[in-house]
Design a protein around this nucleic acid. Structure first.
Lengths: 222, 222, 222, 222
DNA sequence: CATGAATGAGAATTCATTCAT
DNA sequence: AATGAATGAATTCTCATTCAT
């Protein structure tokens, strides 16, 4: 009854996007051919055009959806973190790290393939990315104003922090010695250290943890 | 080592490499065509083959030369820094930041185009890169052993640090408000903070800095 | 004759044919895609196939219907013109010119797209076209036999005349300075002149016309 | 020594143009594929691009060269014809007919494929064509002013005349009963008749013919 | 050392058409 | 009747590369 791939076109479109995500992340946008993509999803190249209009459109879709998703989750995390700067920062860091470890492909594409976007699409993507950066900058500024962080150049700190946190997804291998929670913790320590905040247990993953007796840093000393 | 070049062939080869650096950094290896490159240097595509054997060879040359250069400078900087962990770390940071700000194109290519290298070439490049990472890891380990740094997971800290420092070259614009020395200082502070080393606040440019005796800056020689 | 059309299917089919007429006349048969045609009539490409079997069929339909229509009108005009050669010729000319000015699209297609017809269809179209040419040849021959016209090579004169008359529809713009009646008159004069028939000067619009008694115009009924 | 087609690239380019002329005239621009063209000249499709930049460029080249050629020959013919309107007209007619019979392919393309030209190229082609039409219009106007021709609407007469004369090349078959000279004569008679000029031998092909005894019209009375 | 010409492979995309729903 | 999805065949054109000159 069904032809080949399954029930519906929407399903096929999702499969295509997923395969595109993988292939573009692995080989790069320019290096991925639509033949490859079609083969990956069991279609003929021409059939892809029932699901997107252009290779470029596919790329932009992936980038934009990722950025919108990231932004949405970040706002939710910040909302849940409440008003205190430290907890907001920790929420940001935790969200960023977890998202980046989970969505390695999306992140890779959004970071490496901006140069493959047409000007129009690049503008849109950059605007979203700037929005995201602004979230962190706002957190840092609020913390600095409240005297919670020692932030020199906010912008520099923000960019450096984002670069550091994002880098994690290029080398982290799930299932290894380090859990995702470890990654969050380790990176939170580095960030807080850079901001002159003595890192203690109080500042941890979910941020929702009630304060308690000061425990020694979790990170091993070696 | 020398190709089939005569008197001014070496000059032409250098011009080609420079143009290649620019074009690959801007558009990506896959997206740069040899037609473009030839046009850029005022040759016909066929003539390029008097100066390299393959597009892939050109890429690898650029990547390898960059990595070798970086490694050499790093070793020189470490040597000059003497035996003390803190100074060695600061030397590493300063060298890394300055090199990355100066060699934006090389760095971009080496970071983004590894996936365009053929397996053989990739292996060689990765080996060099790992050598470089090992320099930092060694510095951190030494510092941890000496009790100078609070390093949790050395490897994580090293990768995170490198990601942070490298990120600078993606957004830094020379001639702007921040000098290269500023960049070194700001990043050194972040790194040291992350390692639990109290940094002088002299390094904080704009922040709400707690008053205190002006101590000499830790970093920013060169 | 009827296709697989229901109640309003006939209407849709007519709309499609009309849009096809416009698009083929404007862009040419090869250059018009069924996507374009479908879009023009607010359908999806697949739906067109409820109204014709093949793009080629659509073309042939348009060509054949046009030729049949032209032939029918010509015969009616000749019938109405009576037996006298001059009046028959004028009737032919008037009919041809008026038809060609009114049915620019059909005429364009029938003249330019014969080469796009499959052999079978081409044969049919050529047969119809030859029938049409034969009407004029017969008129000329009759006139020559009656001594009314000075026809050298009948066939040459016929083809030349048809080319001249048909050409009108490539440059005539309705609503301009010249009415359709003007066009008929002007062309009739040229044709008659070429046949050695003295034409009334009433038909000369702007020229340096030698004075003479105003005679009724020969042409331009209808 | 030579690869395949012959001595030089210029030769190959000429061969390509000639084959293009034939194929486009026969099948139409849209219907001719570059594969076909390449096969015709014994090249691979990719090799064609060593000789032109674009299929469209090839088309425009053919059209423009033809129009420039036609214009040049016309001016030469008019120059040779001297100042007298009748002889100028006859020279124009003779030149037009002979050129059109000889360059059937070029003429066909220039007439049918204007719609395949991109706007920019279309403009250029139209300007040339208008120049050509203007040559005839000028001849007619001069003749009308001198009282030599009875021209009603100059423009209409010019267009009708051109259409008639051009039409010849769509049906004329060289080697048939009619020579090219016959074609010239027959069409000259039609044109002159349309202009109210009694056609006699005096008005013939090259115009250079010395006057002699008045012979009856050449065209048979059928 | 540079180049014109050629080429095999492959790129993205379009096309007319089919068919189950 | 209309359509979404699929497809084989074909389109123009680009690419890295070669080689005789």
């Amino acid at each position: 009854m069904a032809r080949k791939v399954g029930p519906q076109g929407a399903r096929t479109a999702a499969v295509i996007r997923d395969a595109g995500l993988t292939l573009i992340a692995r080989h790069g946008y320019e290096a991925m051919s639509l033949r490859q993509l079609a083969a990956e999803v069991g279609l003929r190249p021409a059939s892809l055009y029932n699901h997107f209009e252009t290779k470029q459109d596919l790329l932009f879709d992936l980038v934009r959806d990722h950025l919108v998703d990231l932004l949405g989750r970040t706002d939710a995390a910040l909302e849940a973190a409440g008003p205190r700067p430290l907890e907001r920062l920790l929420a940001f860091v935790a969200n960023h790290v977890l998202y980046h470890l989970d969505k390695k492909r999306e992140v890779t594409i959004a970071n490496l393939e901006l140069r493959s976007l047409e000007p129009r699409n690049l503008d849109a993507a950059m605007a979203l990315r700037r929005s995201y950066e602004d979230r962190l900058i706002a957190v840092l500024d609020a913390g600095a104003a409240a005297g919670a962080f020692a932030v020199g150049e906010t912008r520099v700190v923000a960019y450096a922090t984002l670069a550091m946190l994002t880098g994690a997804c290029t080398w982290y291998r799930p299932g290894g010695r380090l859990s995702e929670a470890d990654m969050v913790r380790l990176h939170a320590d580095l960030v807080l250290g850079g901001l002159g905040v003595a890192t203690t247990d109080a500042a941890r993953t979910g941020g929702a943890r009630p304060p308690g007796p000061d425990k020694p840093k979790l990170v091993a000393r070696n």
